[in-house]
Computed example of a mutant assay.
Amino acid sequence: MFPAGTGPSANPAGERHERRIRSFQPRRSRVTANQRDALLRLWPKWGVEIDGDRRIDLDELFAPLPPGSPVVLEIGFGMGEATVRMAAADPGTGVLAADVHTPGQGNLLLSAEREGLSNVRVANGDAIILLREMLDPGSLAGIRVFFPDPWPKKRHHKRRIIQPEFVELAASRLAPGGLLHCATDWEPYAEQMLRVLTDCPALENTRPDGGFTPRPDFRPMTRFEQQGLAKGHVVRDLIFRRVP
């Protein structure tokens, strides 16, 4: 789709890692001219291929932020609306945003450039490989999983990303006190998330009552969320903290 070295790869990890049930489907839908231009110009500077072949030096990746600046991983960002707004509100925190949706990648790069942001990097590929192979234990200040695919059919529940194995891996990459923040508008999935997160001994619920968290002011409401609310969906936030 793009000349070598100028845009995201279709399958950056290739077949070098084990096959498993995926929680996502790569989406190579139509890219607008502006999105394509942003990918061609900005991917070599701000793009990260999730190839699983190296450990990422986060200080180097997020230069010119000061060494040791906090970094948050966002898994699945859609078109990047909330990502840009949260990055703009917290310019001292690096945001590593991972997705496989090419138009969304281009849109996020374009929006970050327009807003003059220097703290956003876009990762292309499987977030599980990114966490397991490319990020050091305790290296993240936060992980965000907003509105992942709920896979509503029972036979597809195994594809949901919030599973015990994923949560254990995610918790291991958080620094003590780091936050795992999930949100969904699918009530059965919200209940599963709460059970799985509560069962992880490395995490504690930031809610004293052990329940869901009201939407925090720092998580912007997106058009997707507004559409869900208009349909009568109930949005649930869950914020868990990595214990020492």
Rank of each mutant, 00 (worst) to 15 (best):
P3W: 01
S9K: 10
G14M: 06
E15N: 15
R16F: 10
R16G: 15
R20K: 14
R20V: 05
I21S: 15
S23E: 03
Q25K: 15
R30K: 14
V31W: 02
D37R: 15
L40S: 06
P44M: 02
G47Y: 01
I50H: 06
L58K: 04
L58C: 10
E60R: 15
L61R: 07
F62Y: 10
G68M: 10
P70T: 05
V72R: 13
E74P: 12
G76E: 07
G76K: 06
F77W: 01
G80N: 05
G80H: 02
A82W: 08
A82Q: 08
T83Q: 06
R85D: 04
A89R: 10
T93R: 12
V95A: 10
V100C: 14
H101C: 11
P103I: 10
G104T: 03
G106N: 05
L108C: 03
L110T: 01
A112I: 07
E113Y: 08
G116W: 03
G116T: 03
R121K: 03
A123G: 09
A127T: 10
I128W: 12
R132V: 09
M134Y: 04
A141S: 15
I143Q: 11
V145D: 04
V145E: 02
V145M: 11
F146T: 07
D149H: 09
W151T: 01
K153R: 12
H157L: 02
K158L: 02
R160A: 02
I161C: 03
E165I: 07
V167A: 07
L169W: 02
G177Y: 10
G177P: 04
G178K: 04
H181A: 04
C182Q: 04
A183T: 01
D185N: 01
D199Y: 10
D199V: 01
N205L: 03
T206W: 06
R207Q: 14
R207C: 12
D209K: 09
G211W: 03
F212E: 00
F212S: 07
F212P: 06
F218Y: 15
P220S: 06
E225K: 12
E225D: 10
L229F: 08
K231H: 11
V234Y: 05
R236F: 11
L238N: 04
I239V: 14
R241S: 14
V243I: 13
P244L: 09
P244R: 12
P244V: 05
